[in-house]
Structures are given as structure tokens and as C-alpha cells.
């Protein structure tokens, strides 16, 4: 049996593979049966909607170029924003994958190594039961910090400048520049840039404690606006 074709083909080739798949993959799938996968529209929540509308106000020209004008009726507008936000999340995720952000940033907080003190609550399975985590963006390497609690920690302006040229805000940052997400200047994000910012602001927005990140300081937009008046 051990040196025969049938043994190798059926027991080792198919049998052991199937056993591993059953024990390592089918069991978790069955365990999370009760947590149905949410659609992208279902994961749009108040926090990320707030950030999305914030983008509309900060970059009105870019925003209209990418998404058009919202309907004037407030109720329809709310629905419109939700739909566009879902669209942005999907595109943002595509950019996040396409640019390989996930090879430098993870998306889960471990219960060890003081990570909950650095970033916030340890990750739970339900947080990942949605379309945007198929395939899941856990990641296996951190050159930069974990991003699963990133939403709301920084303002959209900060992200715009940071994506345009990271070392403007984090001196000597090894993170690459992404000028192609902008039309020539950090205050002119293009559709992909807006989408990526929406995606990053979404991360962790499902938590009640959003934003939840070590040393969080709200960006004083209002104060700056007041001094300018």
C-alpha cells in the first residue's frame, strides 16, 4: 500500500488533503454558520458615512467628478450617499489590494504583545463576516502599523497628504508615495484616492468605541476654521 500508486494517489494525494481541508477549513466554516456574510451596503455605518460626507465637503470638485451630485431631497440623498459609499468601499478595497498595502499592514489586533494597548480591542470573528473580507485582509507582515482600528484616528486631510507623500507627515517613512491617487496635488484626490480614504476610514468604524487608537486626538478642524474667520 505504501509504495503503490493507488495508495499514494488515493490515501496521500486525495485522502490526506481532504482530511486537512475538513479539519482546518470546514470546521471554522461550520462554526461561523450563524454569522452570515454582510453585503457591502450593510457595512456602511454612521461613522464611515460621516467620513464620506466629510470627503464631499473637503474635496467638492473631486467628489462630484467621481460620484456626481447628490439628489436634493434629503431622504434620497441619504440613500444616495450610502450607495456611493458602498461603491467607494469596494473600489477602495481593490486599490488596497492592488497596491499591496496588505503586505505592509495587517488588519487584526492580537491578544498579545501589548497590541490591545497600542491599537484597541482585540479582533473578533464577527468583525470579518462581510463581503469586504472575502478574501480576508488579515495580512502576515507589518512594516507599517495595523490598520484594523485606523478609521477615525486621522482626518481625511491627513490621509490625503500622507498618501500623496508619507514623509511629509511621518518623517523618514518607508511607506511609498501614491501620487497617482491624486490629480497633481494632495487636495485633489481622484476617484481611487477618495475610495481608498473611505476604505481606511471604514476600518474599525463598526466598533462603538470608534475611534479607538492609542493617543487619539481629534483634529481640530473647527478651531482652524474659527481662527481663519
Amino acid at each position: 500500500m505504501f509504495e503503490k500508486k493507488s495508495g499514494i494517489l488515493l490515501i496521500a494525494g486525495v485522502g490526506f488533503f481532504a482530511f486537512a481541508f475538513l479539519s482546518n477549513a470546514v470546521i471554522p466554516i461550520l462554526m461561523y454558520r450563524h454569522l452570515p456574510e454582510k453585503t457591502v451596503l450593510e457595512v456602511v455605518n454612521g461613522n464611515v458615512r460621516y467620513q464620506f460626507e466629510d470627503l464631499a465637503q473637503r474635496y467638492p470638485d473631486s467628489f462630484t467628478a467621481a460620484y456626481g451630485e447628490p439628489p436634493s431631497d434629503p431622504e434620497q440623498a441619504a440613500e444616495w450617499y450610502n450607495a456611493k459609499c458602498a461603491e467607494a468601499l469596494e473600489l477602495g478595497r481593490k486599490v488596497y489590494i492592488g497596491e499591496g498595502c496588505w503586505h505592509c499592514h495587517s488588519q487584526f489586533v492580537r491578544p498579545v504583545s501589548n497590541e490591545d494597548r497600542r491599537w484597541g480591542p482585540v479582533s473578533k470573528s464577527w468583525e470579518y463576516q462581510n463581503r469586504l473580507q472575502r478574501p480576508v485582509m488579515f495580512g502576515t507582515r507589518r512594516v507599517g502599523p495595523d490598520l484594523s482600528r485606523e478609521g477615525g484616528r486621522r482626518s481625511n486631510d491627513w490621509h490625503a497628504v500622507h498618501f500623496y507623500q508619507p514623509d511629509m507627515l511621518s518623517p523618514k517613512s518607508p511607506m511609498p508615495k501614491y501620487p497617482w491617487l491624486f490629480d497633481g496635488a494632495p487636495d485633489k484626490p481622484n476617484a481611487r484616492g477618495l475610495a481608498l480614504m473611505t476604505y481606511v476610514q471604514w476600518l474599525g468604524s463598526w466598533l462603538e468605541s470608534y475611534p479607538y487608537y492609542e493617543d487619539f486626538q481629534p483634529t481640530p478642524i473647527k478651531t482652524i476654521a474659527a481662527t481663519e474667520e
Binding site: A25, Y32, S125, P135
Partner: peptide
């Protein structure tokens, strides 16, 4: 078998932690 499992299951069938388990596999 590996290629089939890894490229199709976590992309089209399962999400979240289960996709992570298949991805690790």
C-alpha cells in the same frame, strides 16, 4: 487541488476567519 482550493474557496465561497483558515492552508 491546492491551487483550486486556495484561489477559489476564499474568493467566492467563504469570508472572514474561515477565509483566513483556507488562505493559511
Amino acid at each position: 487541488l491546492t491551487y483550486a482550493m486556495g484561489n477559489f474557496v476564499p474568493e467566492y465561497f467563504v469570508c472572514g476567519s474561515s477565509a483566513g483558515a483556507v488562505g493559511g492552508l
